[in-house]
Amino acid sequence: MMRTLKARNGRMCFFITIWSIVLLCMFVLHVGLGSVYVSPWQVIRAIANRPVEPYQRWIIWNLRLPRSLIAPVAGGMLGLAGALMQALTRNPLAEPSLTGVSAGSIFGIVLWLVYMPNAEAMPLFLPLVAFLGGVGSMLVMYALTRQLKDEPFVLVLKGVIVSAVLSSASSLFLIQHNNQMPTVMLWIVGSLNAKVWSDWLTLWPWALVAIPLGICCCRLANVLQLGADVAVSLGVRLQHARLCLFLVAALLTAGAVSVVGAISFVGLIGPHIARRLVGHDAFRVFPMSMLVSACLLLSADFVTQIAGQIFGNIASALPVGAVTSLFGAPFFLYLIVRSRREQR
């Protein structure tokens, strides 16, 4: 027993170390990538305020660092939210959008752009509006599920319904005010383009609060994955435990979506890869999901940057959400086929 536990802990430390090194290397490469290439060594020197050339510090600190910081943090938040939802529903196909928060955030942005005069002249308010929309949809879900007393399958179904209704409402408003379509589309798909320090200042306080809360839910997640009857026999208040996991997942999703938009599949793929690496224990899966998802979103944005370099202006505005969907959709189909084979 002790040997098995030590082996699992050693495996966990090994993968944490490897993925941390990968994330760090990708971060440095991501900062250096752009119309003006900066080598990894020059990036490190510029970040340390010892640039080889003065312009390198200006480019990195003012144009690239915010985007390179937002990508892994937002990816980690979505990955942790996905792991929480999968533990709550006991369904490996669950992802953060099932909370309805993503659709609520987009609906809030649509209302803001349509009804607020000169809304485009106040872009700094968009993340705040998106967050308020996400929190509003979270409250709607809380009311519809009678304080989350429904079974996990019913909870997922209601989340899909709330998302569908809010998405339909957003579409109706956009049809009537199609001049706002380009701005809203970036939020619907999810984008890291033109991110600045104000976006980072919006994201990190929510990450600082929500990520520790998510990690603290590990024990509850492990108990819920054993089933409702076992959880009750262990003295867990089932409704309170579900409520805790759902609210933290919604908070993580709202914080990420309020800055990067409704990026799909990151919160699905990251936890799945994490479980394949370290098993099903939430104490291992949750931090690993964050790390893997951070690497996934950063690598997806790396692809958009490379595409912009190769194809020029045609691909320079490619949203990162399009890349995650391109690779995430086949992965989702693979999971469906695999789950059907396991059920036979």
Rank of each mutant, 00 (worst) to 15 (best):
L166I: 02
Q239A: 13
R344G: 14
I273E: 01
R219H: 10
R3W: 11
V337T: 11
A322R: 05
D301I: 04
G255V: 07
I47P: 06
V140F: 03
V28E: 00
C13D: 11
A87S: 12
W58Q: 15
L113A: 10
S35T: 13
M85S: 03
W19M: 04
D301V: 02
G10Y: 00
S167R: 11
W58G: 15
N179G: 15
G261P: 14
L78D: 04
F332T: 08
I47N: 05
T89G: 06
I175Q: 10
Q343I: 09
R340P: 14
L252Q: 03
P51F: 02
L243N: 07
A7H: 07
M1A: 13
W41M: 14
M122Y: 15
R67V: 12
D281G: 05
A228Y: 10
L33F: 00
T183G: 15
R340F: 11
W58S: 15
Y334F: 13
L155M: 08
I310K: 02
V278N: 05
G159V: 11
H240P: 10
L226R: 06
S316L: 08
G255I: 10
S289A: 05
G10P: 07
G134K: 06
L128H: 08
G321H: 12
L186S: 14
V259C: 03
W58N: 15
P127V: 09
G308M: 07
K158E: 04
V43Y: 01
